[in-house]
Write a protein that binds this DNA or RNA. Structure first.
Length: 903
RNA sequence: GCAGGGAUAGCUCAGUUGGUAGAGCAACUGGUUUACACCCAGUUGGUCGGGGGUUCGAGUCCCUCUCCCUGCACCA
């Protein structure tokens, strides 16, 4: 008896091996290695980040790819790191400082505040990195990078300078997406449209000089009417034709504004008349430009009203002001009605408040290398998977808009532009600024501050975080490292950042390295909860992966996610209440992973209990029993199928193949079929079987290692499959098939017999179960064999079935009422002490025969169809004929049995 | 409005050039045979979202409709 516990306990094992790998520097990549290079850069999580299931899926895939590449003998660099995440981090630290010190960031000052952010980063910035380690990620932690490291920052400034000098970067006063909470501009990608239930206000403006005549206007934003400078109608709109050029009276502050005609106006919408507020609406701004209209800004940066002429609204929040403005209109008798209205409102991705279109001075980038980047994906130089995302990519690239790269934040890469002190005020307000202005010598752009820095003032803005992230595949590497590891092989990330990050990296790769940044992009699935909802903090439906790993093990979680990771479409991550303890939650999919680890552990425990030392040669393949040959053949097939699954990035296939082979083929069939060997006392038999088991297990553990690294390392070590001090994770997969010396025919024949025995065993168990004898070992079967080889397989068959014996008796005359069945090995009888009632038995066989008759009819129907026989492929017809023959022979056998019952 | 994806057993999902509908979980029956109850054996359960078409044959190809999801656009 073994004293090992009967259940696998992952926690201590996982910790032990991870530490051992770290101690032995197993994850370290050598840029001077002569091996072929393979690299992945991690999508850097936010430094404020906490591990969620999306990260787990994402990084499990990366780890699997990295470990697989190592097993193929490649020099692997998986480069980890974190992103400084401008808005998220600044907001977090700002909040903390306010809570702990009661100070705003402005009270603290830029320099002092940034110090606090760095302090925070040093103390708390490692959480997610440590969580990734818990998952087993084999990143080269010596190379951990941060997007605000010194070297990295140099790259960012260099790239900015280069793009400015080439004319790709310019500054201008534009309508941008403004976040009134974070007080910064945002890129278009950072604005999330949300379907909202708004109100559409219908109001009327009186025509100047025509008392009592009104123009009706509809708007969702009455709080901006103080900024109205015109009312627009469609030039073709018959209703308003005579009004064009006339003026209406804006109620407050009172002012006559012109009625203009513009094609943009939708005649169908609302009243067909659109109030024009160039300062607070993108479309209005453009109309204003076309008609040369004055821009009146009536909002502060934080979204409060800036309009001293209307004191009751001045200073109010925009939403409060909206209600009050409507009330004021009503009071004046100018509000006609209010309708419910569904529309999309743009929200700030980070701060989750409606963004405000706002005119401000910002830096913009006209994207470089757009054509190359578009072509790279179209031509297949970069392969995107699932393929359909390539269309999304192409569509965005074709409609690409300039990128607003400046942010009014402190935490980030400061814009490397300086203004000469005496001209600074003037330059800061200049309508436009670009490469041409360098000639004036009044501005300076460069990676280092100007030499006489005291005479210059630096631009205060920082850059969008993604302006540093897009350099990640090479800015993280030294030149020597780039030679070995750039371009990277695979990028694994979520499709939600295809524009934020992936597309931009491709353009950066072509612009600054003259080469693509990666060859394959794999977009992971979105993980939803059991109800199909997106996982989010606010819903609280996102389970903590660390807790799950503590219960089920990291390997169990990894396996579960890989098994349900589909090729396309989303993943539902199930969560159920524990039946015993309703306060506890269980995760059925992860249980499957945990159970699989346990199965693995127990199979190895079984192996260990049979004794015997290190891995030995199998010896003469020719003399191996069919079960041994069969499992070795399936092992060879597994290896090939795994290659295919990896090649097509079908991780769910990969996982199913491994699961199926081990559980159904190795455990359920092979181990059971050879169990008798260990009880035989025949040392030669035992050693032969052990050699096969060890060959299968040692290879299999290697195949499984990329998915479940900890348990496979542990079991390989326990079973003595590794030389002293060696790690499974550093072993190469053996590429040669085990059954190399055997002919196809020999292999097929052995496999055929083994399978026939397995299927027959199933038929017999079936028969036992029908009489509720599932556990009884006392059953003795009598067999009329169909084939000569059957006699050699009776012992194995007995174990598989759970029978006392199976006796061959070719001329057996069954007593009436003896339960019987037909299997590939022949006719089987199960004599019972108390015979079964003849009618019952006839009925049972009758049911079976009815089933067979149906099959025969179906098959004959097909073969009787001339069209089928003539037009279907020969192989299909032949297979159909064989099927029919099989059924017919079974039919004959059962008929005989039935007539014996009658006779 | 445009584009893409999805609908298969009670649940979560496979189903790769058209050729006998599968797995895991759940349910039910039986089982502690010396690896494993995180287990073993067996059973039940599906007109593959609706309709039409192509074909000897359709879950698979084509058309159409319904519902769900995701981008993009509009968003007064």
């Amino acid at each position: 008896m073994s004293e090992l516990p009967t259940a696998y306990e992952p926690q201590s094992v996982e910790e032990k091996w991870y530490q051992a790998w770290l101690d032995q520097k197993c994850f370290h990549a050598d840029e001077n290695s002569s091996k072929e290079g393979y690299s992945i850069v991690i999508p850097p999580p936010n430094v404020t980040g906490i591990l969620h299931l999306g990260h787990v899926l994402n990084n499990t895939i990366q780890d699997t790819l990295a470990r697989r590449a190592r097993r193929q003998g490649k020099e692997v660099l998986w480069l980890p790191g974190t992103d400084h995440a401008g808005i998220a981090t600044q907001t977090k630290v700002e909040k903390k400082v306010r809570e702990e010190e009661g100070k705003s960031r402005r009270e603290l000052g830029r320099e002092e505040f940034l110090k606090r952010v760095w302090d925070w980063k040093d103390k708390h910035g490692n959480i997610i990195i440590n969580q990734l380690k818990r998952l087993g990620c084999s990143c080269d932690w010596d190379r951990e990078r941060f997007t605000m490291d010194g070297d990295y920052s140099e790259w960012v400034a260099k790239v900015f300078t280069e793009l400015f000098e080439k004319g790709f970067i310019y500054r201008g006063k534009r309508m941008v997406n403004w976040c009134p909470k974070s007080l910064t501009a945002l890129s278009d990608e950072e604005v999330i449209p949300k379907a909202s239930r708004s109100k559409l206000y219908f109001m009327k403006y009186e025509l100047v000089g025509e008392p009592g005549r009104y123009l009706e206007i509809s708007t969702t934003r009455p709080e901006t009417l103080m900024g109205d400078i015109a009312v627009a109608v469609h030039p073709d709109d018959e209703r308003f034709k005579d009004l064009i050029g006339k003026k209406v009276r804006r109620p407050f502050p009172e002012r006559a504004i012109e009625i203009i005609a513009d094609e943009h106006v939708d005649m169908e919408f609302g009243t067909g008349a659109l109030k024009i507020t160039p300062a607070h609406d993108k479309a209005d701004f453009e109309i204003g430009q076309r008609h040369n209209l004055e821009v009146i800004d009536v909002l502060h940066a934080d979204g409060t009203v800036n309009c001293p002429e209307v004191p009751e609204l001045d200073g109010l929040d925009r939403f409060q002001a909206r209600r009050l403005a409507a009330a004021k209109l009503e009071e004046m008798g100018l509000l006609i009605k209010v309708e419910e209205h569904e529309n999309n409102v743009g929200y700030s991705e980070r701060a989750d408040v409606p963004i405000e279109p706002r005119i401000s001075m910002q830096w913009f980038l006209r994207y470089p290398a757009v054509d190359e980047a578009t072509a790279a994906v179209a031509s297949g130089d970069i392969q995107i998977r699932p393929e359909r995302w390539a269309k999304t990519y192409a569509h965005w690239m074709e409609n690409i808009q300039d990128w607003c790269i400046s942010r009014q934040l402190w935490w980030g890469h400061q814009i490397p532009v300086w203004y000469r002190k005496e001209k600074a005020f003037e330059l800061k307000e200049a309508e436009s600024l670009d490469v041409k202005d360098l000639a004036s010598k009044d501005i300076y752009v460069g990676t280092e501050p100007p030499e006489d820095a005291e005479n210059w003032i630096r631009d205060e803005d920082v850059m969008d975080t993604w302006f540093s992230s897009w350099l990640w595949p090479f800015a993280t590497m030294s030149e020597r490292e780039q030679e070995k590891f750039y371009p990277t092989a695979d990028l694994v990330t979520g499709p939600d950042i295809i524009f934020f990050w992936v597309a931009r990296m491709i353009m950066a790769g072509y612009s600054f390295k003259q080469e693509l940044p990666f060859k394959n992009v794999y977009f992971t699935s979105l993980i939803r909860d059991g109800k199909g909802r997106k996982m989010s903090k606010s819903l609280g439906n996102s389970p903590d992966p660390i807790e799950i790993m503590n219960t089920y093990g990291a390997d169990g979680l990894r396996f579960a996610l890989m098994r349900i990771a589909p090729v396309d479409s989303d993943i539902r991550f199930l969560e159920e209440k524990d039946k015993k303890d309703p306060n506890k939650k269980v995760y059925p999919q992860v249980e499957e992973g945990r159970n699989f680890a346990n199965k693995l552990y127990n199979a190895c425990r079984f192996r260990q209990m049979q004794g015997g030392g290190a891995l030995q040669e199998i010896g003469n393949l020719e003399t191996l029993p069919v079960y041994h040959l069969d499992i070795l053949h399936k092992l060879d097939a597994l290896s090939l199928n795994l290659d295919k699954a990896y090649a097509s990035y079908r991780f769910n296939d990969l996982t199913s193949l491994l699961y199926e082979f081990f559980w159904s083929e190795y455990c359920d069939k092979f181990i059971e079929a050879v169990k008798l060997d260990f009880r035989s006392g025949d040392e030669e038999k035992i050693q032969r079987t052990l050699a096969v088991m060890d060959t299968v297990m040692s290879r299999y553990l290697g195949y499984l290692h990329p998915l479940m690294p900890h348990i496979t390392e542990e079991l390989s070590s326990q079973l003595g499959y590794l030389a002293n001090g060696a790690f499974l994770m550093e072993q190469r997969d053996q590429s040669e098939a085990v059954l190399n010396g055997l002919s196809e025919e020999q292999i097929e024949q052995a496999g055929g017999i083994a399978e026939a025995v397995y299927r027959s065993a199933s038929r017999l168990r079936n028969l036992k179960a029908e009489y509720h004898l599932a556990a009884s070992k006392d059953v003795e079967f009598i067999l009329k064999p169909a084939e000569a080889w059957v006699s050699d397989q009776l012992d194995a068959l007995s174990v598989l079935v759970g029978a006392k014996s199976i006796r061959i008796e070719s001329d057996y005359a069954a007593q009436k009422g003896t339960p019987a069945a037909v299997a590939e090995i022949g006719e089987i009888y199960m004599p019972l002490e108390g015979l079964v009632d003849i009618d019952t038995e006839k009925e049972r066989l009758g049911k079976e025969i009815a089933k067979i008759e149906k099959e025969i009819a179906k098959s004959q129907g097909k073969l009787g169809n001339a069209n089928f026989v003539d037009r279907a492929p020969e192989a299909v017809v032949k297979a159909e004929k064989e099927t029919l023959e099989n059924w017919q022979s079974k039919y004959a056998q059962i008929r005989d049995m039935l007539s014996a019952l009658d006779g």
